[in-house]
Amino acid sequence: MKPTTPTADLVRGIWRENPVLIQLLGLCPALAVTNSVENALAMGIATFFVLLGSSVLVSSLKKWIPGEVRISTYILIIATFVTVADLGLEAFVPAIHKELGAFISLIVVNCMILGRQEAFASKRPVGRAALDAIGTGIGFLIAMVMMGGVREILGTGSFLGFSLFGPNYEPWVVMILPPGGFLTLGFLLLVLAWVERRRARSAKPDAAMSGAARPETARPDAGTPDRSAA
């Protein structure tokens, strides 16, 4: 693993390697509980807490975790934090806890969290692991609120419970039902791909031209600059 700066550790997860929109990890909660912004926020914050806690713990225990049983150890650590989050939500916001139901417990099997432990926290000092967890957690929260916002605005005509379009708006009920989740994420990915392509085109017109002339050599050149620019 090549060394990175603390800022890069923090910023990377927020957008350029956004867990949901770019890496497509943690899709189950991103689709299942984003039928309103409120649920999406609660889920995002709970996941953020679990990710931060387990990253810090895994990173500080990394010397004592044997390699053969590391995955089970990570899962146990994550499950402990999820239990804390579950009981905490039940105590403070029982209404939301009831709405989210078993999906809070299902944070355990969110591949994004396990992925961060395996790929980052188990190899880095505690501070860096915490920064990475904060960045990834914020990235997850952003993706959740984007999904929840689109689905709530289109599906009920309101945002966080405030009516937006007046009484004549006919809500697209399907958006808050299961198909709407798949559809919203699909179209978000389409929009992102479109934006990415436009930016690549306007940033590197000459690279694209030389890519057409010499495809073998120019393709990696055309690929890397927009990754670092984004």
Binding site: P178, G181, F187
Partner: peptide, 19 residues
């Protein structure tokens, strides 16, 4: 643009509608 995951998700949406 739609090749890959975006297309899969939109297909999944129509399957879900059917279910």
């Amino acid at each position: 643009l739609a090749k890959g995951t975006a297309l899969t998700l939109i297909i999944a949406a129509s399957l879900s509608l059917a279910f």
